[in-house]
Design a protein around this nucleic acid. Structure first.
Lengths: 187, 187
DNA sequence: TATTGTTATACTCTATAACTATA
DNA sequence: TATAGTTATAGAGTATAACAATA
């Protein structure tokens, strides 16, 4: 049973990367791996393979969540893709009969994307399964730790939203250690 | 300044999705968003745009971390891609002069992938920048919370590695709420 | 027989640039 | 002018299946 220990970085990490923080990088690496493991479990077959890419399924989920048809540019912006990519995504979904394009009643520049009954079935089937997997994945974490975890994550996101508006600091040069053969792939 | 609050799911969430856990889904959603925000900050230009995809850069990082040339199938397995995809990835990197294929000295089935000096320069420049961004992103989280966070993440990963070996439980049906127009996109 | 890697094929995602239609 | 969307073009990533070479 691999991968059940906390991933650590080497003791000389902060020597090799001036400006880095060992504990911070450990948090980042473990965050990434945990997130990947959750995704993998959610997508593990047989998940009644809907055969949709993450972006395509997310498009359906966004439409379901909105509870009403949306114009393409709104979906594109929530999905963080370009308008041309959105066109192509909607093309794919339309080909599979999961969405329909219909003209906006008043603004003739816009095209409203509607979920079809087939798509609604896909979403209604997938969402409960996804949330059930998540419930199972987190089930061994006590409720009090969940609140603590949420608060730590929010602290990080708040800091990131500040950083996003600032210029990037110059990076300091890597200091090479003497040659050795230990595996440093965790970095 | 958007997105600095903990993302919550609606109060009737566990009614709508039997078998789901509200706090668990909140953890999963916030984990995903935090992870995305870290990636976005790491990739924020001008990051001396190396122009490499995530997989391509990770391939270089894996080779750098190993400290020695590796056969393709080893990289493929760490990267979680097929051997054919690995061939295509190495093709791309070779075209850009970042890796070289050389025959394995003893096992003639294998091809060892070597980093070129150019690639080493890319990695030596990117890794310190990445770890510096991470240090900044986590900087407002007290050291004791970092350990707590790591431990919670490991608890989740341990549970996931157990689940991965088990059959998927049947999902219960979604219960539709009365129609309303609130935005439920956080799900 | 099993392992390693490649080729062939196909599809999706993604982006930029140029364009049309509408507001 | 600005907004919404499409088309054209291009490149990358991904997978499966069939195959060759080697162990």
């Amino acid at each position: 049973m691999p991968d059940i220990a906390t991933i650590r970085v080497p003791a000389d990490f902060e020597f090799e990367f001036p400006g880095a923080s060992r504990s911070a990088s450990e948090v980042a690496v473990n965050l990434a791996r945990t997130q990947m493991a959750i995704i993998a479990e959610i997508e593990r077959p047989p998940r009644e393979a809907h055969g949709l890419s993450a972006s395509a399924f997310q498009t359906l989920a966004i439409l379901d969540g909105a509870g009403e048809p949306l114009p393409g540019h709104v979906i594109a912006e929530r999905l963080l893709v370009s308008s041309a990519s959105m066109t192509s995504l909607v093309d794919t979904l339309e080909r599979r009969g999961l969405v329909e394009r219909r003209p906006h009643p008043t603004d003739r520049r816009k095209v409203l994307i509607h979920l079809t009954p087939d798509a609604q079935r896909v979403v209604d089937q997938q969402l409960p399964a996804i949330h059930a997997v998540i419930a199972q994945a987190i089930s061994t974490l006590p409720e009090s730790d969940r609140e603590h975890l949420l608060s730590s994550l929010t602290t990080i996101r708040a800091r990131l939203s500040l950083l996003a508006g600032q210029p990037l600091p110059p990076a300091k040069a890597r200091r090479r250690r003497r040659a050795e053969s230990t595996d440093r792939s965790a970095r």
